[in-house]
Structure formats: structure tokens, C-alpha cells
């Protein structure tokens, strides 16, 4: 992950609350197995509306998304983060994020910063009055600035540290492998494993089911 300290760019005012991840990227786009190339799916359904703010040429090139409360609620799809990044967004500001979206953003290097509603509304006014306004999101000082105006942002300490340093989460955890191994040695024996016990061996569970056959319970469970 690249280090993120501060970013300056124009902003897109998205005057909507409760933007769920199905809106950020509809399920149809989730069939792809790549980690990039999702820009075309961003707000795919809303983009049909010519008046949708993402279609306004004056906001072309915006890299800071300023959204209403409860942004990114719903489905866990990290594709929502990837779509925003692929489209060119570096940061999303909202008074409140869906839990999983927020975690996904932090892992992928998209800044999801909490900014209170009055400040969000102010940013909407500022950027609607002048779409060319440069907005700075400063992760070092936890401040968002637009001209002479500024407001505080909130990002949890751990995510902030990782983003500032550009650290890979998995690498950090693998540094504690001895702790993990020690923990594993003390797990109770009654905890389940996904390998089947002998009476449910693979040849007994691998029976194929077809769409049209008539089946008897005996045939299935034998």
C-alpha cells in the first residue's frame, strides 16, 4: 500500500445519505475476478440520470467525494472501494460510514474520513458555488481544508498509522506468528475442523444433484 499523508484535489458533492454499496457498484460488476478495472461500474445505475452529479463536466477529475451520512452501508463488497479508486477518488468524507466499507477503504488505501454533518454541508455549499475549489484532506493533522475554511476529520488511530506509513496489514500480523502458533496450541479439541469425520468421507458427500431427477431420501443419505 502507498503512503498517504495529504491529498489535494477538487471535490464532488454527493448530496445523498444512506448510499449503500449496491449503489456504489451494482452486483452485476462483481463477477469479475480482477482487482482493478471497476471504474465503469461506479454508481452505474445512477449514472443513467444525466442530472446525476457524477455526470457534471465541472466535477470531472474530482478526487474527494463528499457524501451524506451512512455512506457505504450494506454489502461487504470491497469492489465499492476499488470502483471509487479506479474512478480517481483518493478520499471519501461522510459523517458516518458502513463498518465494512470503512475497513475495506483503510486496507486498500482509500481515505474514508469521518467529518461531521455541518462541515459536510459547508463543503457541499463551497464546492457547489465553485466546483474548481481545491480541497485538502490532511491525514497528518486530521484536517480538511477548502480555502480559508477548515474542519477536523476523524480516522481511527490504527488505520491512520498504517496509511501514513503505507504498511501492509498482513505483513504486520505475520510478525506475530509465534503468538498465533502459541494460541493455536491451546485451542480446545472440541472446536470443529472443516475436514469431515470418517463417517462423512468425501465419497459419501460428493453425490451430484441434477435439476430434474426424482430422488428418494435413502439415495441421498446413503
Amino acid at each position: 500500500m502507498d503512503r498517504f499523508r495529504s491529498h489535494t484535489g477538487t471535490a464532488l458533492p454527493l448530496r445523498r445519505g444512506n448510499v449503500d454499496t449496491d449503489q456504489i457498484i451494482p452486483a452485476e460488476y462483481l463477477k469479475r475476478i480482477t482487482r482493478s478495472g471497476f471504474a465503469d461500474g461506479l454508481f452505474a445505475a445512477w449514472k443513467f440520470d444525466q442530472d446525476f452529479v457524477l455526470n457534471s463536466p465541472e466535477y470531472g477529475g474530482a478526487s474527494v467525494l463528499v457524501a451524506g451520512p451512512d455512506f457505504g452501508v450494506g454489502s461487504s463488497r470491497e469492489h465499492a472501494v476499488w470502483a471509487l479508486q479506479d474512478y480517481g477518488f483518493k478520499a471519501v468524507l461522510s459523517p458516518c460510514f458502513g463498518d465494512i466499507f470503512s475497513a475495506n477503504a483503510g486496507k486498500s488505501g482509500l481515505l474514508a474520513a469521518v467529518v461531521d454533518l455541518p462541515a459536510i454541508e459547508r463543503l457541499w455549499s463551497i464546492t457547489e458555488a465553485d466546483p474548481a475549489t481545491e480541497v485538502t484532506v490532511d491525514l497528518v493533522d486530521l484536517v480538511v481544508r477548502a480555502g480559508s475554511w477548515s474542519a477536523t476529520m476523524h480516522v481511527d488511530d490504527y488505520t491512520r498509522w498504517r496509511m501514513l506509513e503505507g504498511l501492509d496489514d498482513i505483513e504486520i500480523t505475520l510478525g506475530q506468528e509465534a503468538d498465533i502458533t502459541r494460541f493455536e496450541s491451546s485451542r480446545p479439541s472440541f472446536k470443529p475442523a472443516t475436514q469431515l469425520p470418517p463417517q462423512h468421507s468425501p465419497q459419501h458427500r460428493g453425490r451430484a444433484i441434477t435439476s430434474s431427477e426424482t430422488r428418494s431420501p435413502k439415495a441421498v443419505h446413503s
Partner: peptide
């Protein structure tokens, strides 16, 4: 609880997750 794809990779690799 539900997790994103980066966390899926984290669990596959380490069988753990950092959680607040």
C-alpha cells in the same frame, strides 16, 4: 461478522484479524 476481500486475504494468510 462480514469482512471485505483484503480481510479475506488476511484471514487466509494468518487465520487472524486485527479488530477494534
Amino acid at each position: 461478522f462480514g469482512i471485505g476481500t483484503s480481510e479475506v486475504e488476511h484471514v487466509l494468510a494468518t487465520q487472524t484479524l486485527p479488530q477494534v
